[in-house]
């Protein structure tokens, strides 16, 4: 199929940036979206032009690196998939496709479609862990049984890939879904209890410091999240935060 791509080009964080138009032809429906981008970049290099920078690594929906805003949707059309899992069969001959980076104050553009998401890492560093040393001299793994339902729910929260689609899609650029996923995972497990309140306070503080917006319960994040992270995590985090703040005063 033949397509017209309108792609965001931005030559570094200071550049204003603009949309540019690229025709691509002979695209097979079996290609992944990123393979289609490879074809375009191959052409650009051959033509002596600057290829489009975009983030990607695993190309199977797990590393969280890929991050394109396609036709106004984070990770493009389709639910429960990352950009790298999107296939060209989702498009048809003659389509015009708009491709932009994640847009959020806390995610500055590095180049073209590549943004800096280290704010996420700093939120985790603020408390998204259990303070246990790595000596291996802990108790036997089966000493504390954990009800299967809790373990499964903790696992579901823990499947967040840290891609940032939730932030990109939120009109307030809020990171609540991402942060609440980590808070919930540890809040649901016995190992996470001792630091539960401190953790949520520190992580929320850091989240605010990074310039993420407030949550107004729109729920767009849940819709676009490729891993189906649930809004109930946000509710859980809000409860924990409230408890922690009341006690703190």
């Amino acid at each position: 199929m033949n397509l017209t791509l309108k792609v965001w080009r931005q030559n570094g964080p200071e550049d204003k940036g603009r949309m540019e138009t690229y025709p691509v032809s002979d695209i097979s429906e079996h290609m992944s979206f990123l393979e289609m981008m490879d074809v375009l970049n191959d052409q650009l290099v051959r033509d002596g032009k600057d290829p489009i920078a975009f983030d990607h690594d695993c190309r199977e929906g797990i590393c969280g690196m890929c991050s394109m805003f396609i036709n106004g949707e984070a990770h493009g059309p389709g639910r429960g998939v990352t950009t790298c899992q999107l296939h060209m069969r989702s498009f048809k001959d003659g389509d015009t496709i708009y491709i932009e980076p994640w847009r959020a104050q806390a995610f500055p553009v590095i180049k073209d479609l590549v943004v800096d998401r280290s704010a996420f890492d700093r939120v985790i560093q603020a408390g998204g862990y259990v303070s246990v040393n790595t000596s291996g001299n802990t108790i036997d793994a089966n000493t504390i049984p954990i009800p299967k339902a809790d373990a499964d729910e903790a696992f579901n929260a823990a499947t967040c890939i840290g891609c940032g689609a939730c932030v990109a899609t939120c009109k307030n650029a809020s990171a609540m879904l991402f942060v609440s996923a980590k808070v919930s995972q540890l809040a649901l497990l016995p190992q996470g209890q001792p630091e539960r309140e401190l953790r949520v306070k520190r992580m929320v503080e850091q989240m605010d410091k990074e310039g993420f917006g407030n949550c107004t319960n729109t729920g767009a994040c849940e819709v676009e999240c490729p891993k189906g992270i649930s809004l109930t995590n946000i509710a859980r985090m809000n409860r924990d935060y409230l408890t922690a703040s009341l006690k703190g005063e």
Binding site: Y129, V130, V132, T134, G136, T138, I139, D140, A141, A151, D152, A154, F155, A158, Q185, L186, L189, Q191, G192
Partner: peptide, 11 residues
């Protein structure tokens, strides 16, 4: 043991 102590949610 180590991973469980860190909160790794094994099956």
């Amino acid at each position: 043991d180590q991973c469980v102590a860190q909160g790794v949610p094994f099956a």
